[in-house]
């Protein structure tokens, strides 16, 4: 337990000191989105990696958070912080309500149902033009502020997002080591066995689904205030799949794995830019090879690779190319 706490503290320190070497450069901006994606991936990982329930509609909750805050602050002039809380609570209630029928489904039927929810929500963003601005997007969303401090630069937004992210990461770390977390893992291994042991599997699945929706909605609100512009195609099926990819690549059932996955996939387009037009091919190849050769994700793969390479002192490029 103690080593966990040290691990987190080191991680938090790295995060908080990170902007110093970057000196306000453009990477600070990218790392804001890494923070947002980390929490989104983490929410999905709690659901999928711990409780074993797939969701292909995670972007919908993110979008609801973003649009909720965006609309309430622009059209109705609500205080952004108040809007954030109100929206997150509403999204959580929505997830709780649909959670019962949806999470009764299993396997690919569950995938289909969550995908359906995602598609419907996205169509709603597109069609309620008077409210959301439709496909051409909603602009003029204010930045967040506390007193006279307005979060209008990359550096300020970086700390804003990462403070939230660190809070949620800490919450998740505590959660997965709690009775609740053990219950989730029991459901993952065998729902029937978990029930026999007295775990209220149905309720717990809905609870973790609600929690992940809540986390996504908060990040959605932050996203809209950082970007000050949102449009529906940022919250589509494509993004749900990207989140799924993040946690599989990073490591299922690992809090830090989610962050690693988010970091890699958010930075990847940047690193692949040297390949120019071929980047999409390299991206596809990477997904396939990493899944084949690092089945436990980066979080298991990197230390394993490290152990294999260090004593042998012989770098075998083929194993991770």
């Amino acid at each position: 337990m103690k080593s966990d706490r040290i691990k987190f503290l080191v991680f938090a320190l790295v995060v908080l000191l990170m902007p110093l070497p970057l000196s306000g450069g453009y990477l600070t901006n990218v790392l804001i989105f890494v923070g947002i994606n980390s929490v989104l991936a983490l929410g999905l990982n709690l659901l999928l990696g711990y409780a074993g329930q797939i969701s292909l509609g995670q972007a919908a909750f993110f979008g609801l958070g973003a649009y909720g805050s965006g609309v309430l602050t622009t059209a109705y002039g609500l205080n952004p912080w108040l809007a954030m809380i109100a929206v997150a609570v509403c999204v959580a209630l929505f997830a709780f309500a649909i959670g019962f029928p949806v999470l009764r489904l299993k396997g690919h039927y569950l995938a289909m149902a969550t995908l359906g929810v995602g598609v419907i929500v996205n169509i709603a963003f597109n069609e309620t033009v008077d409210l959301t601005g439709g496909p051409s997007g909603l602009s003029g969303i204010p930045n967040l502020s506390i007193g006279s401090l307005t979060f209008d630069s990359d550096l300020k937004n970086y700390y804003l997002v990462w403070v939230f992210a660190l809070g949620m990461i800490l919450l998740s770390l505590n959660l997965v080591n709690s009775r609740f977390g053990r219950g989730l893992r029991a459901i993952h291994d065998s729902e029937v066995a978990a029930r026999v042991m007295g775990v209220n599997a149905r309720l717990m699945k809905v609870q973790v689904f609600t929690l992940s929706a809540f986390m996504s909605a908060i990040m959605g609100s932050l996203y809209c205030h950082v970007m000050t512009f949102i449009s529906p195609n940022s919250f589509g099926f494509h993004f749900s799949v990207e989140l799924l990819t993040m946690i599989v690549i990073g490591g299922l059932g690992s809090v830090y794995g989610s962050i690693l996955g988010a970091l890699l996939l958010t930075m990847l387009p940047e690193m692949l830019r040297t390949f120019q037009d071929y980047d999409i091919i390299v991206y596809g190849l990477l997904l396939i090879t990493m899944t084949i050769y690092l089945p436990g994700g980066l979080v298991e793969g990197i230390p394993a690779l490290f152990r294999r390479l260090v004593p042998a002192k012989k770098v075998t490029e083929g194993s991770d190319a």
């Binding site: 306000g24 450069g25 453009y26 901006n29 990218v30 989105f33 496909p135 051409s136 997007g137 990359d154 970007m227 512009f229 949102i230 449009s231 195609n233 940022s234 387009p269």
Partner: peptide, 28 residues
């Protein structure tokens, strides 16, 4: 993708230090 557009606009401004930007292609 709007998110990517914002990141890249930041890159052009902060890293490449361009004097002007042309594009993007879409209204979003």
């Amino acid at each position: 993708d709007a998110t990517k557009a914002v990141q890249l606009a930041n890159k052009l401004v902060k890293n490449d230090q361009v004097v002007a930007i042309i594009g993007p292609s879409t209204t979003g």
